[in-house]
Design a protein around this nucleic acid. Structure first.
Length: 770
RNA sequence: UGGGCCGUGGUGUAACUGGCAACACGUUGGGUUCUGGCCCCAAAGAGUCUAGGUUCGAUCCCUAGCGGCCCAGCCA
């Protein structure tokens, strides 16, 4: 059964918007999104969120999503990048079908629209230098100034633009600019550059073009031309939205009702992870990692090589959610998603890192025991199993034997006993040390009655491999590449390169059970009690290389364990200059000092006994003041009107000027309320209707049936509410006082504005405490 | 010294039209166990950035303040 629009709308604010548009028939009910990477690098975890959101929303609403390469800057882009990106998207599990497109597909259309813009006088060719343009643009606090080319004739601009396209000028000689507003507070609207000259070879269009569109001009047109309806990007593009809308409207590329709409969401940031193309490139170029697909890299290629299943990434992203708050997710949530996915499906096998030789004293030198079959995954027998080989010489993990065990240690200790998983219980008889005092060999005896690991009593369990059939493997154990949860802004002030973990990759020799050699490649598996692993492409026959995707959670807490992270000194507190917004209060004060009539009004309101805050707000401009006077005139209650205006009307997002003709009705409403004819909530309902449709308050009240409830009727309603919620009632009687509000709410809802709150409260109290 | 966006447990996201501040991760304790994993049970942890206001009732509406992020590329 498909999920309803309502359910979809509850998932996040973007789906709420799309659901609303679908249900109101906007765009004819179509939903078209796009994931628009620039093919100049590798996709990373941050992109994964965009993919999940863009493709996910299209899928949920039965729409489509384009994979569109935003290839508007030929100097940095390549087909190789584009192909890798497409492969990464597919790997994540999203099917773009035949909807792989390129911005360069529509270069011609964009060019023609630019000519139209020039003809309409909305764009011009500016021959200022880059520096001059910067100078003339002004700053965030000073407006820009027009340059000498801004008002040149359209025909001249058009001719120049055509010459630009024809290759008549060198790079940087001139640009095409939109003519918008040089004094706009939004810097992007100060005559943005639309086209620049770039004599460069483009990986798709070759040398067809020597002018290329800028992002702000190109992106919205690509969207519009593809029929995109909802164009989702990250928060920092918020300022660009005005320009996005301007270009679409100015070029008339599509009729207004088909204009795509841009929405912004927070980008995904995760502790210990940097997602910045520049920084990642730096890590690769300077040799801090072994390449873009190094398993320590947050690139999709790296995560894939590490063995992280794409479904886990998707689950992680869905768990994080979508909002507009800049945030940083804990690394543990990512880890949880990975373990959660792998736990249900990864085959278990046995292997030991840093092997320690074990000789079974009471076992024949040539005696071999085939154990099993042991299921690959106890929870899923359909996966089948394999047999294990037991012999005189074994290996266990060095960490599973302790000469001086910490309290609570459940593995092998001198004289102690432990279970070899699916094998036998063994007892420590003795051990040999090497020159450095390190254990080099263990002597044990088996308890033959415990074959198959069935010991009949509880004891610690460890994994093991039999020496003859053991498969050697190189284990690559990974840890955080960067040591700070906020590598780009570490409190210590250190640069992220100084935060690189020297132990982010540790290689260990390991031994695996024989069946490991025949495991399908690319198969994620768990080495029991150790972690999840996946074979690395570096593997050769007979020389297995395994990446540890993630260790298992370790519930064992050693008592002597100290906090591992050194507390980094907090230095260099940013001497941050504080920028204050121009307060609205200041503007009102200014208005009053410039206009004596407003000042007089404020005095008048104060004299009438208004709250000073209200008097201030209401005397800031004439429109509001006029409305106040009109309402007060209609009902004869100035303070009441003031309160009503500040608290009811301002909350409903209406313009004072638009309300002037309704002032008499509003006054009448206040009168009804004052006389007790209408209850507070009833008045509120009338107000809603009044604002939406107009009309006379008394008539509306009558139509809505808002006559006040009689005492008896109210009592009956309250009793009915109590009867309807026996569970809550008993909880309340047991002392959950907050349920008073719940019952009050139910009563108010049931009476739909016909009950006076104080009265209802009194009745409720009475019935609750007889 | 302009404009825009955003402030809810340690973290991330919810909370219908103003009506029991919820879910997940994490943490702690316990249980179970042939993986110190998984699973099960329980607990602690925010009164919603602050201060006022409206209201029977405010995370939600109003006012003021505080804090964070983005914008002055011929990058996207």
């Amino acid at each position: 059964m498909p999920v309803s629009l309502d359910d979809l709308a509850k998932r996040d604010f973007l789906r709420a918007i799309v659901a609303r548009d679908v249900s109101t028939g906007r765009y004819g009910g179509r939903v078209v999104t796009r994931f628009p990477p620039e093919p100049n690098g590798y996709l990373h975890l941050g992109h994964a969120k965009a993919i999940v959101v863009d493709f996910g929303i299209a899928r949920d609403f039965g729409g489509i999503c384009y994979l569109r390469m935003d290839d508007t800057n030929p100097t940095t882009e390549s087909m190789e990048f584009a192909e890798n990106i497409a492969a990464d998207v597919r790997w994540l599990g999203f099917d773009y079908g035949d909807r792989l497109t390129f911005a360069s597909d529509v270069f011609e259309a964009m060019y023609r629209l630019a000519e139209r813009l020039i003809e309409k006088g909305l764009a011009y060719v500016d021959e200022c230098s880059e520096d001059e343009i910067r100078q003339l643009r002004g700053t965030v606090t000073e407006p820009g100034r027009p340059g000498p080319w801004r008002d040149r004739p359209a025909a001249e601009s058009l001719e120049r633009f055509r010459q630009m396209r024809a290759g008549a000028f060198p790079n940087g000689a001139m640009v095409l600019r939109g003519r918008i507003d040089l004094s706009a507070t939004n810097m992007l609207l100060r005559d943005p550059i639309l086209y620049r000259i770039k004599h460069a070879h483009h990986f798709r269009t070759g040398d067809d073009w020597c002018i290329y569109p800028m992002y702000d001009y190109a992106h919205c047109l690509e969207d519009a031309l593809e029929g995109v309806t909802h164009s989702i990007c990250t928060l920092e593009f918020d300022n660009n939205r005005a320009l996005y809308d301007w270009v679409i409207q100015a070029t008339e590329v599509v009729p207004p009702e088909l204009a795509p709409q841009q929405y912004e969401m927070a980008r995904l940031e995760v502790e210990y992870i940097v997602t910045s193309k520049r920084r990642l490139k730096q890590l690769v170029d300077e040799g801090h990692v072994r390449g873009w697909d190094d398993p320590r890299m947050p690139t999709l290629a790296g995560l894939r090589r590490r063995g992280i299943p794409p479904q886990a990434l998707v689950a992680f992203i869905e768990r994080v959610g979508i909002a507009k708050t800049n945030s940083r997710v804990e690394y543990s949530l990512l880890e949880h998603a990975i373990r959660d996915h792998l736990n249900l499906r990864a085959r278990r096998l046995m292997g030991v890192a840093d092997p320690l030789r074990v000789v079974v004293e009471n076992w024949g030198a040539d005696e071999v025991d085939e154990l099993g079959p042991v299921p690959w995954l106890a929870e899923d027998p359909s996966l089948g199993g394999r047999s294990l080989r037991f012999g005189k010489e074994l290996f266990i993990a060095r960490e599973d034997f302790e000469l001086s065990p910490p309290p609570g240690f459940k593995r092998l200790v001198p004289g102690g006993e432990v279970r070899l998983l699916h094998g036998y219980a063994i007892r420590h008889l003795g051990h040999e040390l090497d020159g450095q005092g390190r254990v080099r060999l263990l002597r044990v005896e088996v308890d033959r009655s415990t074959r198959g690991g069935d010991t009949g009593r509880r004891m610690g369990s460890i994994q093991w491999v039999e020496a003859q059939g053991a498969v050697p493997a190189t284990l690559r154990l990974y840890d955080q590449l960067l040591l700070s949860p906020t590598p780009m802004a570490d409190p210590s002030g250190r640069d992220f390169l100084d935060l690189i973990n020297p132990d982010s990759l540790v290689e260990q020799a390991g031994l695996l059970e024989p069946a490991a050699a025949s495991l399908p490649v690319g198969q994620a598996f768990q080495v029991m009690r150790t972690g999840y692993f996946a074979a690395d492409p570096d593997s050769r026959p007979g020389a297995l290389v395994l990446n540890r995707t993630i260790p298992l959670k370790d519930g064992f807490v050693r008592k002597e364990e100290a906090p591992p992270v050194d507390p980094v000194a907090v230095v260099g507190e940013d001497e941050r200059r504080k920028r204050k917004k121009r307060p609205a209060a200041e503007l009102r004060a200014e208005a009053r000092s410039a206009d004596p009539r407003l000042a007089a009004a404020q005095d008048e309101l104060l004299a009438a006994g208004l709250d000073p805050a209200e008097a201030d707000v209401l005397s800031g401009d004439h429109e509001q003041l006029a409305l106040l006077r009109a309402i007060a005139a209609a009902c004869g209650d100035l303070p009441g009107s003031a309160r009503f205006l500040t608290n009811e009307l301002r909350g409903r997002d209406v313009q004072p000027a638009a309300l002037m003709d309704k002032a008499p009705s509003l006054g009448a409403l206040l009168t009804l309320r004052g006389a007790g004819t209408l209850t507070g909530p009833g008045a509120s309902r009338v107000l809603d209707v009044l604002l939406a449709e107009g009309g006379q308050p008394a008539e509306i009240a009558q139509r809505l049936g808002l006559s006040s409830l009689s005492d008896g009727a109210l009592r009956a309603e309250v009793q009915a509410v109590l009867d309807r919620h026996p569970d809550e009632l008993s909880r309340l009687r047991q002392g959950e006082q907050k349920l008073r509000g719940f019952f009050m709410g139910q009563v108010m809802k049931a009476t739909r504005g016909r009950a006076e709150p104080q009265l209802a409260q009194a009745v409720l109290d009475e019935l609750l405490n007889p």
